[in-house]
């Protein structure tokens, strides 16, 4: 019996650690974008390296959780939902890391007067991913609050879309090269996708939560 509770506790800790990685990844992304916009390239690259390392760890952790859930035949009726949620949330972390990597590779020419708006965009998208993590944690522990967290994610996704639209309109209203405009739009879309992915996951989560009610 002690062994039974022991292995459950280990996976419980692994899931918590995995979700911590997503939150930490979001914080690194925010810092990285801030440093990029401020022109602090070295510190930006440090954050990117940390984020890529974190993403790799999260991948390994997710695989370990999945293997353990299957080999130890735990939570048989919810296993499919949990694995789906973990894979999708890993996808959100990948989107965060890929977006920051694109900054490093493509070095977009930012517009100084729009930097504040761009940072606002990044902050909102990451906030959506943070509430997504809270919703997932609630799914495991406190079903009654899942709905509240999902509502926050929906709101933040809309807010992110609104800021992204504003940013894109502003960029396209300026006298810039079309390639430059498209490049900046591409980065806005990439950041926007973080919030969209978080909301997609929450749609799945809402269904999975209904299934968990006895």
């Amino acid at each position: 019996m002690f062994e039974l509770f022991g292995k459950h506790k280990q996976i419980e800790a692994d899931i918590d650690e995995f979700l911590d990685h997503i939150v930490e990844g979001g914080l690194l992304f925010k810092k990285g974008v801030k440093f990029y916009l401020d022109g602090r390239k070295d510190e930006f690259e440090d954050r990117l390296a940390d984020l890529r390392h974190l993403e790799k760890n999260a991948d390994n952790l997710r695989r370990r959780i999945e293997t353990n859930l299957y080999t130890k035949t735990l939570i048989p009726e919810f296993r499919g939902d949990v694995l789906g949620l973990l894979e999708h949330s890993d996808g959100v972390l990948n989107q965060i890391a890929d977006t920051l990597l694109e900054f490093s590779v493509e070095q977009p020419e930012t517009l100084e007067d729009l930097n504040k708006l761009k940072y606002e965009l990044a902050k909102n998208a990451i906030k959506a991913s943070e509430f997504m993590v809270k919703a997932i944690r609630a799914y495991f522990r406190d079903l009654a609050t899942v709905r509240d967290q999902i509502k926050q994610v929906n709101f933040l996704r809309e807010e992110t879309n609104r800021i992204a639209e504003k940013y894109k309109r502003d960029v396209y209203s300026r006298d810039l090269r079309l390639s430059h405009k498209m490049h900046l739009r591409y980065f806005a879309v990439s950041i926007e996708n973080i919030a969209d992915d978080a909301e997609d996951l929450c749609d799945r989560l809402a269904i999975a939560t209904i299934k968990r009610y006895i």
Partner: peptide, 10 residues
Amino acid sequence: ARIHMLRLDA
């Protein structure tokens, strides 16, 4: 009770 899903499974 706010029991974790995995602990509830156990």
